[in-house]
Structures are given as C-alpha cells and as structure tokens.
Nucleic acid binder design. Structure first.
Lengths: 126, 126
DNA sequence: CAGTATCCATTAAGATACTG
DNA sequence: CAGTATCTTAATGGATACTG
C-alpha cells in the first residue's frame, strides 16, 4: 500500500514470512481491513467501482482503489474497462478468487460463533 | 497493538467493520502478520514462550508477547502459568481456537495453489 | 464515472536494554 | 525463563481537492 522501503526489516520479515508459510502468504494477499469485505461483495457477480463504494460504507475512494489494484495484480479480481463515455469499469472474481468463497464463509461462521461466545461471557460476568 | 486512540476515524472504522460483518470480525481477531503463524505452531499441543520464539524465526519478544496477549484476551489461546522457578508458561489453543484449524489448512492450500499459479505465469512471461 | 495526487494522522513493527 | 520498558522507524489509513 503506497510506498514501501525495499530493505526495511519490516519488509524483509514480510518476505520471509510469505516464502516460509503458505498460510501467511494467503493472509498477506487477502488480509487487511478491507480486502475480504471487497471480495465478498463480488461473490454474486460483477460490480462497478461506484457500486462497490456504495456497498462498502465508509471506504474512501483511495482505499478502494489501492486494494482493488492489489487484488488485481495478485490475480484475485479481474478488472474490465469498457470504452464508453462516461467510463464503465467492472470488477469480478477470477477463478482462484472464487475458490476463496467457501473459506470466507467458514471464517464468517467462525466469527459469528466467537461473537456469540463472547457475548455469553460478558452477560455472565455482568 | 500498543495504545490506540479511541476516537480516531481509523478506530471507528474498525469498530463499524467488526460490528457489520462477521468475516471482517474474524479477520480483525486473527489477521495481522504473526497471529496465524503463532496459532498454527500450537496446532499439535502446548508450547512454551521460548519454544514459540524459537519456532517463529525473526519474531521479537515484544511482538510475540503482544500477539499472545491479544489472542488470550480474545479467548483463542489459553495461557497457563506454573508456579515454578524458573517460571514456566504454556500456551495452547482453546476450543474455539481449535475450530480454526480446518480453516487455516484450507487457506494454506489456497495459498499454495495461488503461488503455483503465479509461478506459472512468471515462467510463461519470461 | 472512475479514479489521482497530496498531505497528514494513526497504528504496527522492530531494536535494544533491562528485570522478577 | 518469560517477559517489560522505551524509543524509533515504517507502513497503513484518511481527508480533501482535483482530473480525463
């Protein structure tokens, strides 16, 4: 995101971690605050930039652009530009992107379950 | 991690995103550079602080401590202190923590597949 | 419509030294 | 052994204004 220093320890650690472990590799590609949120909006088909922006309340154009660019360069979403005026651009999941769908569904259920559990703990405590 | 400003837009966005979407809620709990790496070391049982540090090349004590504390307070790992000298502390997955195992295995396979695919693309291009 | 560019605020990560 | 404390750097996120 933005500019990164090639030889910062931070960046070297990131590289080490990505090369060492497929799991962390995935997290690097798909982690971060907005990425999965963007991806799951695309689950049911193509969306335009403005539709994504509308669906993801609070995201700025900058953040949306940056993350879409990364997802695109990582081959997880496909960007199609139509030569029209006004311009039309559509985003959709690639094949490998679609393979994430079952994973984020499970992660989502896990989150729901965890949330329920925490709620119970709080109620018992209060 | 460390101190966060309660009312920064950043923090408010994080809260919004966590309350809105179970998926992002999960990512917030378990995302970040080191968390899944720590968790997957614990897959096969208990480990001590020093064993984790040794197994996770390059992590600093500070990072390990901070993440373990978060995972603990989120109920994903359990910390057991034995009243011995020298001190012994063991970490293990909780029940809800263990339910993440199949998920990270799939994410890991997805990562491996994605990596293969990218390699192919590079070879074709070069 | 679909973005860029710029600048600033906030947070995450790391180095190092130290302690019960 | 299992951490804290303190300080510094790097990276991410956001606000705002502007453009082909």
């Amino acid at each position: 995101m933005g500019k990164i220093k090639e030889n910062s320890t931070n960046n070297l650690n990131r590289k080490y971690i990505m090369s060492d472990c497929n799991l962390t590799y995935s997290v690097c590609l798909v982690g971060g605050r907005w990425k999965l949120l963007i991806l799951c909006k695309l689950e049911h088909g193509k969306l335009r930039f403005s539709e994504l922006k509308r669906d993801i309340c609070n995201i700025t154009e900058r953040m949306l652009t940056l993350h879409l660019r990364e997802l695109e360069s990582d081959g997880i979403v496909k960007r199609t530009v139509y030569a029209e005026v006004p311009p039309r651009v559509e985003y959709q999941l690639t094949e490998i992107g679609k393979e994430l769908i079952p994973i984020w569904k499970q992660l989502s259920s896990w989150g729901a379950k965890h949330r329920e559990l925490s709620k119970t703990v709080c109620e018992v405590e209060s």
